[in-house]
Amino acid sequence: MRVGDLDIDELARQVQRPCGIDVCIGPFLVNLQLGLTALLPVLWRMWGDYPLAVPGQVRDFHVRLDHHGWLRRWWRPQARFTVDGRSPFQPLAAAHHFPMLEWGLNWCVARRAHHLLMLHAAVLERGGRALVLPGAPGAGKSTLCTALAHRGWRLLSDEFGLVAPQHGRLLPLPRPIPLKNDSIEVIRAFAPEAEIGPAFTGTRKGTVAHVRPPRAAVMRMDEPATPAWVVFPRWQAEAPTRLEPLNRSDAFLMVAGNAFNYELCGEGGFITVARLVERCRCYRLGYSDLDAALGVLGALAETEP
């Protein structure tokens, strides 16, 4: 049974019960309870392929989205995100409900999942081999990731490169991809088949619209992938497409410096990053043209053994 198998009224009923619903999202089991129903249509679409778990298991996060204060329901309404009963951040405008839920989940993963090394990176897979795209904000990671996910690469994650220290493979966490501002139109033009949700304007990151994770990506979210390439993308207007090899120590410092919990993982973090860099080919990719960038990355997958 998947979230989208429920009709939307039934989803509304279940998710408003005190016990909420239990949803599998990548390696995590999330208990979701809503006191705010405005986001149901977008949630139903974006989370449609996630399996519902049988009740009675141990959940990783108990998250809620509620109205904040009874008065505010009418006057500049606000929504509050809570995890296990605590609000990690200030309430936001209620109209930003879905982005808030997604940011909230990011917070949960980043603050809790320290049994994994968490890289700040998009991850995609082709032919059993994974491409890791660590990205500073504004480097075009989400746009590139969405484009690849609609051109034959399997989406593992747009935000979190989850490395299991035991075997060094990457665990999928396919989530709706938040496109910001101009990227929304870029993707609409580039991949008309991409399913894009409503645009939320005036968030702290500008206008945000989510791309529904491709169905196949969610269906295969239990299959880890072996890292093969680390590519640091950098989008720059008018820049030519250039793929330059990167030496290992630079790659190490950039991967570790971009991770959410490298320091916290201690010795294990050092070993995991060193192994990752050692088993991958590392590059820097400068680009302005999406098609050309995809061509270069596709060629990597075709040509490199």
Binding site: D60, R112, A113, H114, H115, L264, C265
Partner: peptide, 21 residues
């Protein structure tokens, strides 16, 4: 223990070791 519980405990261990270090 259930696998998910073990993960949370492992994560807590990393945090403790990090702070103590």
């Amino acid at each position: 223990l259930p696998e998910r519980v073990a993960h949370h405990l492992h994560a807590a261990r990393c945090q403790v070791q990090y702070q103590q270090r």
